[in-house]
Simulated assay, not measured.
Amino acid sequence: MSKIIFNEFQRQQLENNPNVNHVSDRSISYKPEFKIAAIKEYKNGKGPTDIFIEYGFDLDIIGSKKPQQCLKRWRKTYEKYGEEGFKNELRGKGSTGRPSSKDLTVEDKLKKAEARIAFLEMENDFLKKLEELERKAKKQN
């Protein structure tokens, strides 16, 4: 997160930029199309600062280091996931979780499955006891 805190006027000015999804007090959410276009222009030899200026960003507002930081982060995403990495949400509710970086052996998969089964059985037992307590509480009332 940025050390820069945007005031109301700066937020409004940034939100008027067609390449911005959302602006909070401390962060800017850029549109996926802009990120992809910026990476392609960077690969063609244009500098990060020039790209941001060309797309209508005021470096006095966002900070002079922001273009380099953003493009560094976006390039990593682009190399790992391609253009789809910007179009699909990789965090939060839309995410399927962090994929395992190593392949599990059959024994490890079995241990993991047994642990999950044990957890689900305990959860089931807990819910049964909770239902029973709720039934008793209703009878007493």
Rank of each mutant, 00 (worst) to 15 (best):
G85F: 02
N21Q: 11
K109Q: 12
N16E: 15
K31V: 08
I39S: 03
M122H: 08
G45W: 11
F6Y: 15
Q140N: 12
R116P: 00
E15I: 08
S27G: 03
A118T: 12
S29L: 09
E89Y: 02
A113D: 09
E15G: 00
E54H: 13
I4N: 05
I51D: 00
E15S: 12
V23D: 04
E134P: 00
Y78S: 02
Y42K: 07
T96P: 00
K65R: 04
I36V: 15
E107G: 04
S2L: 06
F52H: 04
F126C: 04
S95W: 06
T105G: 08
E132K: 12
V20R: 02
N44M: 11
P32S: 06
S29F: 10
E131S: 14
K128S: 08
E132P: 00
Q10S: 12
I62N: 02
R26L: 05
E41L: 15
T96V: 11
S2E: 03
K139W: 07
D108F: 03
A118H: 11
V20I: 15
R73A: 13
E121H: 05
G56K: 06
D58V: 01
L14H: 05
D58L: 04
N44H: 08
K35P: 00
D25E: 14
K111N: 14
I117E: 13
E15T: 09
T96C: 08
Y78Q: 02
L71A: 03
L90K: 11
N44R: 06
K80H: 09
V23N: 04
N19E: 12
N16W: 07
E114G: 01
R98V: 13
L127K: 12
A118F: 03
